[in-house]
């Protein structure tokens, strides 16, 4: 019995290493099958090992590991190439807009907020701070937009907003030096929510500093008195209740990217 097994095995190994022309059809089938399946199983093992490697990488920010973050950043490099001021989010007539825009989060919406003392702090390149109230903002030409607001969760809603173009704001307050930086940073007054946005997206003609929803002042839960609306990004970048605005060449802190592992760019 043992003898037979050993002879069988040695014949089998001999088959694999012998030249094809010395083998009969049966032996050839056996040889080719064994070789192919050996490669096949090796491939499967390699794929499995690669998957385990990817799953076990240390996380850099939030829940996203270093290689995955690198890929997200590489995707940004590729797809930010098609970002253009000429590519506009589709707009709709006001009648298509929903009556009550969805409120999806309360981060940065501290209850102790006092609207009467609110000022937006624009931190300039010189280090000076430009302090503006809502009337200063409203002096600039008003722009309205009705567009499909897209949440990163997957829902979208046609909503109607009014405010001033961010690019108009930059021009009106001579912030060209600041706008030459790579990123715009925004923070809520309570520092509970913060986003970073690449400057080309911030300067996109549909990006608004927004003070109206459905033709009325922003409700508190929509970021009264002033919020960002940026149609070229998922909704998480449209920060409610702007406290501080600053400009930088390095990526400003971003709540969803730093704390929760989302892509930083999130461009649409």
């Amino acid at each position: 019995m043992l003898n037979k097994t050993i002879i069988g095995m040695s014949n089998f190994i001999k088959n694999i290493f012998s030249k094809d022309r010395n083998l009969n059809v049966e032996q050839l089938i056996q040889k080719k099958t064994i070789l192919s399946f050996t490669f096949f199983i090796a491939f499967a093992a390699f794929a499995f090992w690669g998957w385990k490697w990817l799953r076990n990488q240390p996380t850099e920010s939030g829940k996203t590991s270093v290689p995955l973050r690198k890929v997200l950043n590489a995707n940004e490099k590729i797809f930010s190439g098609i970002l253009s001021d000429k590519h506009l989010a589709k707009t709709f007539p006001v009648s298509k807009a929903v009556n009550s825009a969805r409120v999806n989060g309360y981060l940065g919406m501290n209850n102790n907020f006092d609207p009467s003392t609110w000022m937006m702090n624009v931190i300039k390149a010189t280090g000076d701070t430009l302090k503006l109230n809502l009337d200063d903002i409203k002096k600039l030409p008003k722009t309205e937009i009705v567009f499909n607001f897209k949440c990163i969760e997957g829902w979208s809603q046609i909503t109607y907003w009014g405010g001033i173009k961010f690019s108009d704001f930059i021009k009106a307050y001579n912030l060209d030096t600041e706008a030459a930086k790579k990123f715009l940073g925004l923070r809520t007054p309570d520092n509970g929510y913060y986003v970073g946005i690449d400057m080309p997206s911030a300067l996109h003609p549909q990006t608004l500093l927004c003070y109206e929803l459905n033709g009325k002042p922003l409700p508190m839960n929509q970021g009264y008195p002033l919020r960002l609306i940026i149609p070229v990004k998922y909704g998480v970048k449209s920060l409610k209740r702007i406290g501080d605005m600053f400009f930088s060449d390095s990526k400003p802190p971003d709540y969803w990217a730093d704390e929760k592992g989302y892509d930083y760019y999130l461009g649409l």
């Binding site: 890929v71 995707n75 892509d263």
Partner: peptide, 14 residues
């Protein structure tokens, strides 16, 4: 696991 899903989706899409 939304952020995780997006990160994997946008790698394996390639």
């Amino acid at each position: 696991r939304l952020s995780e899903g997006m990160a994997y989706h946008f790698l394996f899409m390639w």
